[in-house]
Computed example of a mutant assay.
Amino acid sequence: MKFLKRVQFVFHFRSSLPFIKDFFISSSVHPLKKLVTAGLIVAYAVMPADIIPDYLFLVGITDDIAFTTFMLQLAVKMAPPELAEKHRLHIK
């Protein structure tokens, strides 16, 4: 059941973009949480090697999708409940 919720979460990524913006500009989110999230994203972006090379097309983007999902779920967990509620994002 948890796997299906994560897959559904991936397909609703576009609707999560306003949450990401609010997460980084909100004064109710601790600056350290913003720094950790941004740092992990930047570290992944500049990492010279992928877990699965992207030239393998559909298989190659799997690790990128997994990382993006992980980071979004982490941001939702670190956000104040009222921010997640405002955007109707819930991770259990």
Rank of each mutant, 00 (worst) to 15 (best):
V42D: 04
T69A: 14
L72V: 06
M78H: 06
P53M: 06
F57P: 01
D63W: 00
F19L: 06
F19D: 03
P18K: 01
F3R: 09
V46Y: 13
M78L: 15
K33L: 13
V42F: 11
F19N: 01
A84E: 09
L83C: 10
I51M: 11
T69C: 12
S28H: 11
L83Q: 08
L32D: 09
Q8W: 13
V36S: 07
P53N: 08
K2V: 11
I20M: 15
P80I: 01
K2A: 13
P80D: 12
F70C: 08
S27I: 07
S16V: 06
V7H: 05
P81K: 14
P81H: 07
I41E: 09
H12T: 12
L32Y: 08
T62F: 09
K21F: 15
M71K: 00
I51N: 02
Y44C: 09
S27T: 13
I20C: 12
M47C: 14
L4S: 07
F13Y: 13
A66C: 03
V36C: 12
I41K: 04
R6T: 10
S16T: 07
A43T: 11
L83E: 11
A38M: 08
I61F: 01
A75R: 04
F57C: 08
F9V: 05
R6F: 10
L4W: 11
A66E: 02
V76P: 12
F57S: 11
K21C: 08
F19P: 10
V46A: 08
V42M: 10
F19V: 02
F11A: 11
M71D: 13
I20Q: 03
Y55N: 11
P48E: 04
V29A: 12
V7L: 15
A84G: 15
T69K: 02
I25T: 14
A66Q: 00
A43D: 02
H90D: 04
Y55G: 02
S28A: 13
S16D: 11
V36Q: 05
A45I: 13
D54W: 00
P53V: 02
